[in-house]
């Protein structure tokens, strides 16, 4: 059962990823990406990472991609006249890089296979919200705080960059 689910999700993920890259319509690209994320979330469930599976949908598909779609609509850039870069040499480089990195990665990963099961026995507890929350607020509290600060800063920074008009300057000059 797990095998069939994995095959289905994997095929779906690769197909949507390809769809994202070659789709002419930007909105379609975004929707392909949403579908890709949903299928990855399914894979996470197979791997017993329940918490991540949920926030993958909530944060990625639910929030980030909505933002993307919002911007695409706002800028009204759904159709592209010519899809890809004109530089042929760049295709070649991209192809080489892609194949090269892919081969390297598969080769590296291939050496990893061993007798351990895919999902270790401890995973049943490790993937829960409780387990993650436990370390997040103790061991990883410092990066967690920094992330909180970063999100605040990012929102303010985005406002700074996207504001249409510059704010009025302070009047006093020295």
């Amino acid at each position: 059962m797990i095998t069939y689910s994995f095959i289905f999700l994997a095929v779906l993920a690769v197909a949507t990823a390809l769809g994202l890259v070659i789709s002419k319509n930007t909105v379609n690209s975004a929707l392909f990406l949403v579908l890709n994320m949903v299928s990855l979330s399914g894979v996470y469930l197979l791997l017993q990472a329940q918490f991540l599976a949920i926030i993958q949908i909530l944060v990625y598909a639910g929030a980030i991609m909505v933002l993307f779609l919002f911007v695409i609509m706002l800028l009204n850039i759904d159709e592209e006249e010519s899809l890809f870069n004109k530089f042929r040499i760049k295709y070649f480089v991209a192809f080489l890089l892609g194949v090269g990195i892919f081969a390297q990665l598969i080769y590296s990963i291939g050496s990893f296979s061993d007798t351990l099961p895919v999902v270790s026995a401890q995973m049943a507890e490790a993937g829960t919200v409780e387990a993650i929350g436990d370390v997040l607020y103790t061991k990883y509290s410092l990066p967690f705080h920094i992330i909180a600060m970063l999100l605040t800063a990012a929102v303010n920074g985005a406002l700074l960059v996207a504001q249409h008009k510059t704010k009025p300057l302070t009047e006093e000059n020295d």
Binding site: L18, T26, S29, F84, A94, L97, G98, V99, I101, L105
Partner: peptide
């Protein structure tokens, strides 16, 4: 790895900044 490489190729060949 496959998804990662599709991503790389996409970054290199597409010209729409959002994509």
């Amino acid at each position: 790895a496959i998804l990662f490489c599709i991503g790389i190729v996409g970054v290199l060949i597409r010209k729409n900044a959002i994509v």
